[in-house]
Design a protein around this nucleic acid. Structure first.
Lengths: 316, 316
DNA sequence: CTGTTAGCGCATTCAA
DNA sequence: TTGAATGCGCTAACAG
C-alpha cells in the first residue's frame, strides 16, 4: 500500500532495465526466455502488480467500464450483472455500476459524467424512452441490453420466442382458450412485443385472444386477472412472473378455484415454490450478461464489430 | 474522448500557469478572486474535467473503493448497496462491486487483488466464517457490515431489537403462545442472535418457547412450520421474510386454516402483498448502507476513527 | 534482444 | 498571488 514497488524496483532487483520489465509485464515478444524468467521470478516473489493509474494515464485508457442498470434490485438485471462482473475483472477492467431508475435524465447525467471520466465503455440496460441520439456518441464503446439502436451493439431477449414457447406448450397440454396478462404497449419489449407475439400466436393456433395490459407489478396482475378469466378460459400467459404472482393470488382466492394453468416469462424461484403448478420460460439473463460483456470487450480490443445479439429463450 | 483537454490547455486558454489551474481545481485558497473566476469560466465553457488517473497517480490514491457483497441478488445487501453507490460517487470514488458468495476463500482472493490494486478502502458484507486475521491488514480502510471485529469499523443490524419489537407487538395483540422459526446457530446473527433474543424475550414475557432452526430459505420455512405449530400456538415469529413466505405457504394449505399471526424480520414487499395479514420489522438496510459509506469516507479522509455502528430496527 | 530517453496529466515544491 | 520546474509509474520510440 504505502511502500509499493515500481517497475523501477523490479528492474533494479532483477538487474535489467525498466522497459524490459514493462515488456515482460505486457507479454511482448522481444524478450529472451532467460531474462523473462528471471524478471518474472522477481515479480512473483515480491507480489508486484503494476500501478493501474500509471498504466491508464500512459495508455489513454482508464480501463474502466460502466454498467448502467435501471434498478439494482431487478432480478433479471441483477442476474445479468452477476455474470458480467467477473468477465470484466478478468480482462483488467474495473466495472462501475450505476442506476438509471428508468429515468432518461439520469442516463444522460451518467453518460455525461462517464464521458468526462473517460471510461472505456458502457453497458446500458435499455428501457423505453431512451433516444438514439443520446447514445450515438458512444457507438463502438457501448452495448445496450434489451433494446436495439442502429449502429450500436445490443443484446436482446427473444420476447417473441418466449411467448410462443409458452403458448405451444399450453397447446400441447390441450388448452384452447388462452388469455394473456401483459404490460401496456408504451413499453416496447415487455409490453408491445410480448403482446404482439401473443396475438400472432393466437392467430396461428386459431385461439380467440383475450388480453389485458397493465403494469409490471403484482398489484397489476392481481387487479387485471378478473378481466381475462372468462367462463371457458383454461390457461393464462403472463408477461412476467411478477404479474403471474399477482394473478395467482387472485385465482387462489376465487371460490371455487378456477382450474387455470398459469405460466409466465421469467424464472423467479419464488413463483415455482409458491405455485408449483405454474411453469415458465427463462429469457437467459445470465447468458445475456456474458454475451454483453464479451461483446464489449471484443469491441474495445478492436476485434469485434458492432453486432446485434439475440439470446434464445427456453422452457425452465 | 480522444482530444481531451488538459490543465495545460486550460492554462493557455485562460492565460495563466498550469499550477494556478490546479489550484482552482482543488479549491486552494491562494488564488485571487478574479483569476479564479476567469479560470473557472474557461473550465465550464469547455466542460473540462481533470484526468482521474493522472490525479490518482500523483496523489498515491486511486480513488477506488471496493464493495464485497455476499450475493448481489440478496435483497438486503442490494438495498444497502444502492444507497452507498451515490455517496461514493459524490466523493469522487469509483465503487467496484464484487461477490463473495459466502465463501471465505473468495473474500481472501478479492482482498488480495484489491490490495495489489491499491484500492483506498473496502466495504465488506460479513458472514459467519470470516476470520479476524484476514481483515486485520485493512484496519482503517475497511467497514464491515452485519458483523463486528475488533479494531475494524462495522455497521450492524439490531437483531435483538428486531425480535423484541415483533414479540412485544404480538404481546400487545394478546398472543401468549408465540413460536419461532429461525436459522441454525452456525450463523452468528440471523441464526444465533435472533434465536437468543427470542429465548430471552420469552423468558421476560413468560412465554413457553417453541422453536425450530433450519436454513434461510422458503423451503426450510415450509418444512419446519409444522414442528412449531402446536395446538394453542397463536403466533409465529420468523427470522426472515423468506422463511415467513415458506411458513405461510404451509399454514395456508392447512385445512382448517390455523388462525396464526405470522410476522418476520425483513421487508420484502412481496410478503406484504401476498399475505397482508402478516407484519414485519425493517432492519434498516438503506440506513446501514448510508452509514457504512459515510463512515468509510470519513476514515479515508482522516476525519473519523474506527467505530461500531448499530442501526435501529423499526416496525414496517 | 535490451537499455536509455521522453513524456502522459497532474500536484507540489520553489522562486519570483 | 503566481509561474516554472520536478517527478509520480508507466509505455513507447529510439539507440545500441
Amino acid at each position: 500500500m504505502q511502500n509499493r514497488l515500481t517497475i523501477k524496483d523490479i528492474a533494479r532487483l532483477s538487474g535489467v532495465g525498466k522497459s524490459t520489465v514493462s515488456r515482460v509485464l505486457n507479454n511482448e515478444g522481444s524478450v529472451s526466455p532467460q531474462t523473462r524468467e528471471r524478471v518474472e521470478a522477481v515479480i512473483r516473489s515480491h507480489g508486484f502488480t503494476p500501478s493501474k493509474s500509471a498504466r491508464a494515464m500512459r495508455g489513454q485508457s482508464d480501463k474502466v467500464v460502466a454498467i448502467i442498470v435501471s434498478r439494482l434490485d431487478s432480478p433479471s438485471e441483477n442476474q445479468a450483472l452477476r455474470t458480467m462482473l467477473p468477465l470484466l475483472y478478468q480482462h483488467g477492467f474495473d466495472p462501475i455500476v450505476m442506476e438509471s431508475q428508468f429515468e432518461t435524465r439520469l442516463v444522460q447525467e451518467h453518460l455525461h459524467v462517464l464521458q468526462q471520466r473517460n471510461v472505456d465503455g458502457v453497458i446500458l440496460f435499455g428501457f423505453t424512452g431512451l433516444s438514439a441520439a443520446m447514445l450515438a456518441p458512444w457507438q463502438e464503446k457501448m452495448v445496450v441490453m434489451a433494446r436495439d439502436y442502429p449502429g450500436i451493439s445490443s443484446v436482446c431477449y427473444d420476447d417473441d420466442g418466449a411467448v410462443k414457447l409458452l403458448m405451444q406448450r399450453l397447446r400441447q397440454l390441450g388448452h384452447a382458450h388462452i388469455s394473456y396478462l401483459g404490460v401496456q404497449e408504451t413499453d416496447a419489449t415487455t409490453g408491445m412485443r410480448r403482446y404482439q407475439a401473443y396475438l400472432d400466436t393466437c392467430r396461428e393456433l386459431k385461439i380467440p385472444p383475450v388480453a389485458a395490459l397493465g403494469e409490471l407489478s403484482y398489484q397489476s396482475g392481481f387487479q387485471l386477472a378478473a378481466s381475462v378469466v372468462e367462463p371457458h378460459t383454461s390457461a393464462l400467459v403472463c408477461a412476467s412472473d411478477t404479474i403471474a404472482l399477482g394473478a395467482m393470488k387472485y385465482l387462489q382466492q376465487q371460490q371455487p378455484l378456477a382450474p387455470i394453468q398459469v405460466c409466465a416469462i421469467g424464472n423467479t424461484p419464488l413463483l415455482n415454490f409458491l405455485f408449483p403448478e405454474t411453469f415458465s420460460v427463462e429469457l437467459g439473463y445470465g447468458a445475456a450478461g456474458q454475451q454483453a460483456a464479451q461483446q464489449l470487450l471484443g469491441q474495445l480490443s478492436g476485434e469485434l464489430g458492432v453486432r446485434q445479439i439475440i439470446i434464445p429463450s427456453r422452457l425452465a
